[in-house]
């Protein structure tokens, strides 16, 4: 824009107040500093997650054992669904860069199309997240929680995790994720089959054999799915952090979709065409890429590590 020439001519006077020392508009600068502060907020959350994960290592669930679903497919496929979500978000980042790119060329139609694609990508991501939360909350195998607060899944002699359904009704009947099991029937079924053992949630996959499990199971109760107080996957804080961090990120995505939509309406109305530049698209684009950036870290620290 107009500053380019004056910046070049009076380079030695950059800090003299005659031009913009950081060479960017106020709006863009403030968006960047907001994103910097937001980045520090998210690092605070992720680091807090790390603190408690290190503190309760043996009770912290292995993410591979938690996020294993894929739509319309039975069986366990760790990482595949989150990988798809990551792909969706990266893709919507690409369409956003495309929109900014068309904006530089003052091509209103191009910006409109790419911005619409970005909004769609964001909406699909939010839908995927809702689906994942749903399965996280409903749960998969169910677990027993002991009096001392520890919890374990029930496994067969080989250490393969069995669901409560498997041990109460047998594994050959169809599985209903929503069936609630009473503590008594689970304890009775566990006692009746001496090949059953308990598996602690941690990555070490510690096993408690049937004999030493009996006194623990005696005073335990059944936990299915996840809520803010307890979850079948492991330490209660795991679900708290999951809801809070992915929820806070999802809230950012939702806000991003909303902002993108407002900008989209202005693009369609020709506001930026008349203004002579599409800097608003760049600014909202910065926010959108930041949301993608945060997801890259959430993906690593929640699902991979």
């Amino acid at each position: 824009m107009a500053t380019q020439a004056s910046v070049d001519q009076s380079n030695e006077n950059v800090w003299g107040g005659g031009n913009r020392p950081l060479g960017a508009s106020y709006g863009k600068l403030m968006m960047w500093y907001f994103l910097l502060s937001d980045a520090l907020t998210f690092s605070g959350f992720l680091v807090a997650y790390g603190l408690y994960r290190f503190k309760f290592e043996s009770l912290w669930p292995d993410p591979d054992a938690v996020f294993t679903h894929f739509p319309f497919v039975h069986g366990e496929y760790p990482l595949i669904y989150v990988a798809l979500m990551t792909f969706i978000l990266i893709m919507s980042s690409v369409t956003m860069v495309m929109a900014v790119n068309e904006g530089h060329k003052m091509n209103q139609k191009g910006v409109t199309v790419w911005m619409l694609a970005t909004i769609l990508g964001g909406a699909i991501f939010l839908g995927s997240q809702a689906w994942e939360w749903y399965h996280f909350i409903v749960g998969e195998h169910g677990a027993v929680r002991f009096e001392d607060g520890r919890m374990a899944k029930i496994a067969d002699a080989d250490g393969t995790v069995l669901s409560l359904h498997d041990i109460v009704h047998g594994s050959d009947t169809p599985h209903d994720h929503h069936e609630k099991f009473a503590t008594d029937e689970v304890i009775a079924a566990f006692k009746a089959d001496p090949s059953l053992q308990l598996l602690l949630p941690g990555k070490e996959r510690e096993i408690i054999n049937h004999k030493s499990a009996l006194p623990l199971v005696e005073n335990s109760y059944v936990v299915q799915g996840a809520n803010m107080k307890e979850n079948e996957y492991g330490h209660p804080l795991f679900a708290n952090f999951f809801f809070f961090i992915t929820g806070f990120h999802g809230f950012h995505v939702f806000t991003g979709v909303l902002l993108n939509f407002i900008i989209f309406v202005n693009i369609v109305k020709g506001t930026y065409q008349r203004r002579g530049h599409y800097e608003m698209v760049e600014k909202v684009g910065l926010y959108w890429h930041f949301v993608d950036l945060v997801w890259v870290f959430v993906f690593t620290f929640f699902y991979l590590v």
């Binding site: 503190k55 309760f56 290592e57 043996s58 009770l59 607060g149 804080l237």
Partner: peptide
Amino acid sequence: MGSITLQSIP
């Protein structure tokens, strides 16, 4: 904290 916490009491 992990090294001094009784891991059994979350």
